[in-house]
Amino acid sequence: MDPRGSTDGTRRLTLAGTTNVVSRSRDFTREALIAWCWLPDGESAGSDPEAAEDVLLLVSEVVANACLHGRGPRALVLDCSPERLRVEVTDGNPAPPVRIPDRGPDERAQPGGHGLLILERLARGWGSESGADGKSVWFEVPCPPGVCAPAG
């Protein structure tokens, strides 16, 4: 893992060329959320485990989508301020994410195709920014009150 920027509110994990990227990303994010008091570590008074679990789910979805549709994730960036947490995942495919159209009742139980729906429901906002050699997919969630997020 590459926890650059770990002394403030920005952390970066390089994923290109690594294995187990979804679990690495979740572990990296969990460590940051503990440091920022979103999750209890035995010493923190303020925490919001439900909000943290939503973030971990969203990180898993975005990284998995980069694996399946983005030619593999390159990096995960967490940027936490007292107001919000922004998560960005870069990959090697410049094409923007595409939401699968709503499915009929018989098709809803089928695996796959739910990642962007989960992102839309749990994140305050999300989007993607394409570049010449790939894209960045990002989402933001509000910082729960009472946690000790870094002061930008």
Rank of each mutant, 00 (worst) to 15 (best):
C67N: 14
G113A: 08
S23A: 13
L76P: 03
P97N: 01
C37S: 11
G146I: 13
T10Q: 14
G115M: 09
D41F: 04
D27Q: 13
D41V: 00
V137E: 00
L122M: 03
S130Y: 01
L76D: 11
P3K: 11
R11P: 05
L68R: 15
R103L: 15
T10F: 03
L85S: 08
P150N: 09
A16Y: 07
T18W: 10
S128D: 01
A132L: 04
T18A: 11
V89N: 15
E120L: 01
R11E: 14
P82M: 00
F139D: 13
A51T: 10
R74V: 15
V77L: 13
P142A: 15
V147M: 05
V147K: 04
D41E: 06
P101K: 01
S128C: 12
R108V: 07
N93E: 13
C143A: 08
V62M: 00
V63P: 09
A151N: 13
H69E: 09
R4C: 07
R4K: 01
A95T: 15
S130K: 12
L116Y: 08
S23F: 07
I34D: 01
P111L: 10
V147N: 02
A35Q: 07
A52Y: 08
V77A: 13
C80Q: 13
A66M: 11
T7R: 11
P73M: 02
T14A: 12
R86N: 01
P49F: 10
E88P: 10
S44T: 12
D54L: 14
L39N: 10
A51H: 11
C143D: 09
V98T: 08
R12L: 12
V87F: 08
W38K: 12
D79K: 15
F28C: 02
G127Y: 11
L116A: 04
R124E: 07
G152E: 13
L117A: 11
L58M: 14
W138S: 02
K135Q: 15
P40Y: 01
T90Y: 00
L13G: 00
S47H: 15
E83N: 08
P105C: 03
A16P: 00
A45H: 03
P111T: 05
G152D: 14
S81C: 05
P96V: 12
L76C: 07
E50Y: 05
V59I: 10
D27T: 14
G42Q: 12
T10M: 14
V147H: 13
R11N: 01
D48S: 13
A52N: 10
V137K: 06
P150W: 00
G9V: 12
G115Y: 10
P97K: 05
L119M: 14
D41S: 07
L116D: 08
L85C: 12
L85D: 06
N20A: 02
E107T: 03
W138V: 05
G113D: 04
R108K: 09
S60G: 15
E31G: 04
P111M: 09
S60K: 06
V147W: 13
L78E: 09
V141K: 08
P3S: 01
R74C: 00
P40G: 14
V98E: 10
G134T: 02
E53H: 08
M1N: 03
A64V: 05
R108W: 05
T19P: 00
P144T: 00
T18E: 04
L58E: 11
F28M: 14
A45V: 15
A109Q: 11
E43F: 03
L117M: 02
A95L: 14
R11F: 07
A149Y: 03
P142L: 15
R71I: 00
R108L: 03
